[in-house]
């Protein structure tokens, strides 16, 4: 059974790691979670991103969600924002594509041209 005790250990481990890093986060990932996003699989996309972050032990990434963006025909939509650079928007994303975005964009810092919608926010 999972207990809150475990969180205390995770906290200690995380605090030690945080000391080594300067900024709080480097990438912000925003998943469009409006009605049409959810209906086309946005939750599964977000879950895939979270699973990848956990499996690859990536820190410095925050994953958040937002409502409709007026891009309903391209849902599920994922934005990747690196510090203060303009947002990179990916469209028609599924869990597999989401994993590729994590591997290529968040890990190797290479924009995945195949899924790109626009680079202006």
């Amino acid at each position: 059974m999972k207990t809150l005790e475990e969180l205390r250990k995770i906290r200690e481990k995380a605090q030690n790691e945080m000391k080594l890093r300067e900024s709080n986060y480097r990438f912000k990932v925003v998943v469009g979670m409006g009605t049409s996003g959810i209906a086309t699989g946005a939750r599964e996309v977000m879950k895939a991103i979270l699973d990848e972050i956990a499996a690859r032990n990536l820190t410095g990434i925050i994953v958040t969600q937002t409502g409709e963006k007026g891009l309903s025909s391209m849902e599920p939509v994922v934005d990747v924002i690196e510090n203060d650079k303009p947002a990179v928007t990916y469209g028609n994303i599924d869990p597999e594509k989401a994993r590729r975005i994590v591997a290529e964009h968040l890990v190797n810092n290479r924009i995945v041209q195949d899924y790109l919608v626009t680079t202006t926010s």
């Binding site: 995770i10 906290r11 972050i53």
Partner: peptide
């Protein structure tokens, strides 16, 4: 329990 550690920390997820 987590204090200032974000929920998106891998082990926390």
């Amino acid at each position: 329990e987590l204090g200032d550690i974000p929920l998106s920390y891998p082990d926390v997820i």
